[in-house]
Amino acid sequence: MPVPKDDFDALHPCDFYTPAELLDDDRMYTVYEIARLLQDLDADEELDPETENVLLDWAIPWIMFHSEDLVVAEPRDEEEPGYYGVAEA
């Protein structure tokens, strides 16, 4: 159920990093690593599965929105996820 804006002490702009601001040009990242970086966590931070699922809810749309600025690489083996990186300008 929607709630009034007045219920909140503060409202903040919905401002996300661009791929160039978030990712190193010479690195490739999994969606799990991107999810952590979007929350200012270390890419290899240990998270419980429930928290990781919440972070993925933010990361997947971010990747889709910025798809024109990203490159993707196939997993190196079947047990590994795909990788994303900054597209060359």
Rank of each mutant, 00 (worst) to 15 (best):
T51R: 06
Y17F: 12
H12A: 09
M64C: 02
D9N: 14
L56G: 03
D25G: 05
P61T: 01
L22Q: 11
E50C: 04
A43G: 04
Y29K: 07
L37H: 00
D40E: 08
L47D: 02
D24F: 06
Y17L: 09
D44T: 03
D26R: 10
L11G: 08
R27Q: 05
L38H: 08
D26N: 15
P4N: 10
M64N: 02
L38K: 05
Y17K: 07
D7L: 13
V31L: 07
L47I: 01
P61W: 11
D24H: 10
D25Q: 09
D40W: 05
F8W: 11
D42I: 06
L22F: 12
L56N: 04
Y32F: 07
K5V: 11
R36W: 00
D15A: 14
P13H: 15
L37M: 11
Y32C: 04
L47N: 01
P49N: 01
I60Q: 07
A10P: 03
N53V: 06
L23T: 10
L11Q: 15
I34G: 03
T51V: 06
W62V: 02
D40M: 07
I60C: 06
D48A: 12
P13N: 14
E46G: 01
I60Y: 04
D9M: 12
F8A: 11
A43Q: 14
D25L: 04
V31W: 02
F8Q: 05
F8N: 08
Y17R: 08
E45N: 00
I34R: 03
E33L: 01
C14H: 14
L22M: 12
Y17H: 07
D40Y: 09
P13A: 15
A59D: 03
D9H: 11
D9P: 08
A20S: 13
V31F: 00
R36A: 00
W62I: 02
Y32I: 01
D15C: 12
A10H: 13
D44Q: 00
Y29W: 11
A10W: 13
P49D: 05
W58R: 04
R27N: 05
D48L: 14
M28C: 08
L22T: 08
R27H: 04
I63Y: 06
P61G: 03
I60M: 05
